[in-house]
C-alpha cells in the first residue's frame, strides 16, 4: 500500500509563546521546530503499515525551505520519499494550503502512475488548528475522509478506521483510495536509529513550486491571552506539607 502523509513544521514552544512585534507569527528566534504531534503519529502509522504489508511512504509538507528539517526527520523514521512545496515562510490560509497540497499530490500521483491508496493528515495542525485542510484536499480529490482516527486496519480495497468518540469508538469501513485525519495516541512514534539518520541524509528532496490564491480567512494579528494572575501559596518544602494539603482536600469536599 502506497501511503502519503501531510505534515506541517511548527515551532516547539516551552512555558510561554511569544509573538513577533508585527503580530504575524510566533517569535521562534530561540525555539526549535517540530512536526505537529498528530502528524508524527500519522507518519508512524504509515511506516508500520508499509513495514507490515509493503509499499512506500511519501511525506509532503508546505512551508519555508527550512521545513526540509522535518522532512529529513520523517526519512530518518522510515519515510521513503520526501516532497517540499516551498513558501516564503508566511502563514498560508487553509484554502490556499489545500489547493497547493492537492496540486502537489496530483503531480506526485501522475509521476507514480497511480493514486496513493491512503493519504493521512493530522486531525488538526498544532499551531493554527484550522481543522479543515485534510477535508478540503480529500474533497478536491473526490475521496472519502473521516477525522479523529485512532485505529487503522488496511483491508482489501478498503480500510477499517476507528473514530474516537466519548468512551469508545465508531468504526468506519472506507473504500480506498481514502483519506484519514489521525489523532495522537494511535501509536507511539519511534525515535530515529543511527541507520535511519544516515538514510535520511541520502533521501532525495523533491520540491514542487506551487502557488495558489489566498482564501477568505485572513490573519490580522496574533496575541497572547491575558495572563491569569496567580499567586501561589507555598505549602512547604518537604513531606510535612501533607497535613496542609489534606486540610485543603477536606475543605473542598473531595475527601468523602
Amino acid at each position: 500500500m502506497n501511503i502519503l502523509v501531510c505534515v506541517k513544521r511548527v515551532p516547539a514552544p516551552g512555558a510561554k509563546i511569544n509573538v513577533t512585534d508585527d503580530g504575524q507569527s510566533v517569535d521562534a528566534a530561540h525555539l526549535g521546530f517540530t512536526t505537529s504531534p498528530h502528524e508524527e503519529c500519522a507518519l508512524e502509522e504509515a511506516v508500520q503499515i508499509a513495514e507490515r504489508d509493503g509499499g512506500e511512504v511519501t511525506v509532503l509538507t508546505l512551508g519555508p525551505v527550512e521545513a526540509e528539517e522535518q522532512l529529513r526527520y520523517a526519512a530518518s523514521v522510515g519515510a521513503h520519499k520526501i516532497i517540499l512545496v516551498p513558501t516564503d515562510g508566511s502563514a498560508w490560509d487553509p484554502q490556499r494550503t489545500a489547493v497547493a497540497l492537492t496540486q502537489a499530490i496530483e503531480t506526485a500521483e501522475a509521476a507514480n502512475g497511480s493514486a496513493f491508496e491512503l493519504i493521512l493528515f493530522g486531525n488538526e495542525s498544532a499551531d493554527s488548528g484550522g481543522f479543515q485542510v485534510g477535508v478540503r484536499v480529500a474533497h478536491k480529490l473526490g475521496r472519502p475522509i473521516v477525522n479523529a482516527i485512532k485505529g487503522i486496519v488496511p483491508g482489501d480495497g478498503s480500510v477499517t478506521a476507528n473514530r474516537e468518540i466519548d468512551g469508545g469508538f465508531e468504526v468506519y469501513e472506507v473504500p480506498t483510495p481514502a483519506v484519514l485525519g489521525v489523532k495522537e495516541g494511535i501509536n507511539l512514534p519511534r525515535y530515529p536509529t543511527m541507520k535511519g539518520r544516515l538514510a535520511s541524509k541520502k533521501a532525495v528532496l523533491e520540491t514542487a513550486e506551487i502557488d495558489a490564491a489566498a482564501g477568505g480567512q485572513t490573519l490580522v494579528k496574533l496575541h497572547r491571552p491575558p495572563e491569569q494572575a496567580s499567586n501561589t501559596e507555598i505549602l512547604g518544602t518537604d513531606e510535612s506539607a501533607a497535613s496542609a494539603i489534606v486540610d485543603i482536600l477536606e475543605e473542598i469536599g473531595v475527601l468523602a
Partner: peptide, 14 residues
C-alpha cells in the same frame, strides 16, 4: 484560538 488556546488570533472572514 491557535495552539489549542495558548495563543489568540484576530482574523477576518470574507
Amino acid at each position: 484560538v491557535q495552539w489549542g488556546g495558548s495563543l489568540l488570533e484576530d482574523a477576518t472572514l470574507d
